[in-house]
Design a protein around this nucleic acid. Structure first.
Lengths: 350, 350
DNA sequence: AAAGTAAATGCAACCGATTGTGTAAAGAAA
DNA sequence: TTTCTTTACACAATCGGTTGCATTTACTTT
């Protein structure tokens, strides 16, 4: 039953006959503490097994060393890699990571953003829920000067950090790739157009078609909200049933693209001869499925690392420059590279 | 610049001319506060937009409402589903989740367990690193009466909660399944035998063979530490090169099993006629790869939910019964069900 | 009406680190 | 030696709830 109490700075102060304030400052290399004292304090702290109480520090400073993360669903290849990157970078810099998932629900997103706020996170990284239209629930972070980073699924207008890929150019590249393989009628399976990721990819798709004087046929564009495997199958079957079916499909994620592949296979269509297919994300499945799925690769882990770095660097600059502020209308967009990964599902001529 | 201060219980106390202690108790429905006062306080709190400062409460009670999670790698299908389940359950019960990853390194695991401890997590859920042998770094949680749940990869002897599957019987079932399909020489690709998951599956594999009077050939067992795709390929190639190659492979995860499938395909071996293959986990790839990969399904999300529930219920019982204690040598093992998912990679006779 | 008991609320210490300001000690200049 | 600066450290308030104990108020009971 005898829970041995944790060592506090009081204990160190007593042992060294110093004030707690001196201990506190010495441990953070405060300039007004002599080197001799700093060494002495650190040695004692080490010997006594002192470990600072983050709660006490947090209470006083009204801020923790926790980065809040608000994503849609943790168990998605892209998201889990993103989180992995965030955790890795945060960890190295001495921050912890608190995870929440909105399940693509706007209400959950609002509540979780409040919960993270109440937890006094020192920064927040968010990828928007599919449902979200209004993003004013994030304003409080700006008001409190808490760095806010939107990643991948970002709002249209919100003056803050954004870490993302150039979805327009990626959509363009994917479509262009199919065109280069000889496709003349290219269909597109997209997610909610309220999300920048999908609307931009679609824009790129349209522009690539126009540039090559190909028809943009609304019948060839399916706004499948979920982009699930089934959505991919359903949409593809609808395409195949058209009087004038497409010879290429660009799906806005790999899951739907895999659905397209399975649908085509079931119909006995040859991939890529009859129908070329390209997805998006380069999920593990892409390289495993037969035929290999051409896709757009995403640096997911790096996006996580970059997002975490934005938060950490912003905090650093806040410390160094008391004038720095979120309110200076920071609008920094970081684009990470995407690449066409050409596999068998699209390569008409090898 | 005018950061409006948060509403505190002091503000409520002042407005209602009550003591802060009364506010504090009223908000938690303390029995010694009258219903009338409770209602009045809650109404005022609501109106004033009061949100409790979790740090202050945490400091006083020396404990947060944060559940620490220590896993090996976040971006693995099984792990990310596990975390998803934990987050979901924790969230509903009013807890937050702090995530860390050991990258299968023992040192990282030790440090992260300390970091979580320092964060005053109210509970911890851990899946051991591949490297870990000694688990004494978790003892401090027991000493402090902080519920500790090991999930999936659990230590041999540690009196605490365990949430897992019956790996022995799962290994047995997988092997038995291959035997039932007519396999006579079954190889096994396993992970580190220091982890219960792999050693138990192997034990089940061996017993299934013995039971059917099949040979247990050490040449057919590869202790591939990583269980990566490449490990699966390499191990399989080694098997195929044997004078007396196997007609079945049981890989201890799907990633390695997929490696086995690809290796077999490259050699022109027919699956399952020449070589039947079964994996473990039922990752998304399993149902997508061609041929469909037979495997053992794992209720990953449910394992997460169950683990979180163990933590939460333990905390509840601690509150209700001040005598309850970790030190009563709790050893509660919860087994979740596994199932053989038979797909084309193993079905010799349909 | 006095006394006794139960119910409701107030008081104040406490958790442990942080930080503005005050003061003592050490060194430099006169 | 005295005075003026630096340099180094101490004091004490503070962050916002929580909780043991004291106290007041409201009701019974005789």
């Amino acid at each position: 039953m005898e829970e041995k109490r944790d060592v506090t700075i009081y204990d160190i102060a007593e042992r060294l006959s110093l004030a707690t304030s001196t201990i506190s400052r010495a441990l953070k290399d405060h300039p007004s503490i002599s080197d001799r004292t700093i060494k002495k304090v650190k040695k004692a702290a080490e010997e006594m097994g002192f470990r600072p109480n983050t709660l006490a520090a947090g209470l006083r400073g009204n801020q923790t060393k926790i980065i809040g993360v608000l994503v849609t669903r943790i168990n998605r290849p892209f998201i889990s890699s993103l989180i992995s990157g965030i955790e890795e970078t945060a960890q190295k810099a001495g921050y912890s990571v608190m995870i929440t998932q909105s399940h693509d629900s706007y209400n959950d997103e609002v509540n979780l953003s409040k919960a993270l706020y109440d937890s006094r996170v020192c920064g927040i990284i968010c990828s928007l829920a599919m449902e979200t239209r209004d993003t004013s629930h994030f304003q409080k972070f700006i008001d409190k000067n808490i760095p806010l980073v939107f990643v991948d699924r970002v709002p249209k207008d919100f003056n803050t950090y954004r870490v993302m890929i150039d979805n327009y150019s990626a959509g363009y590249k994917a479509t262009k790739h199919l065109i280069e393989q000889g496709c003349k009628r290219i269909a597109h399976i997209t997610g909610s157009l309220h999300r920048n990721t999908y609307s931009e990819r679609r824009r790129g798709y349209v522009d690539a078609l126009l540039e090559s004087n190909l028809v943009v046929d609304e019948a060839l564009i399916v706004d499948s909200t979920g982009l699930t495997f089934e959505d991919g199958e359903t949409a593809s079957n609808a395409f195949f049933d058209l009087q004038n079916p497409p010879d290429g499909i660009f799906a806005s994620n790999d899951t739907a693209a895999v659905g397209a592949i399975q649908a085509a296979k079931k119909r006995g269509l040859k991939i890529p001869e009859d129908i070329a297919i390209i997805g998006f994300n380069d999920d593990p499945i892409a390289s495993i499925i037969d035929p290999g799925l051409s896709t757009i690769s995403h640096p997911a882990v790096k996006m996580g690392q970059t997002s975490a770095k934005k938060v950490i660097n912003h905090l650093k600059s806040l410390r160094n420059n008391a004038n720095a502020s979120n309110k200076d209308n920071i609008t920094e967009v970081t684009f990470l590279n995407t690449e066409v990964v050409a596999r068998e599902s699209s390569k008409k001529q090898s």
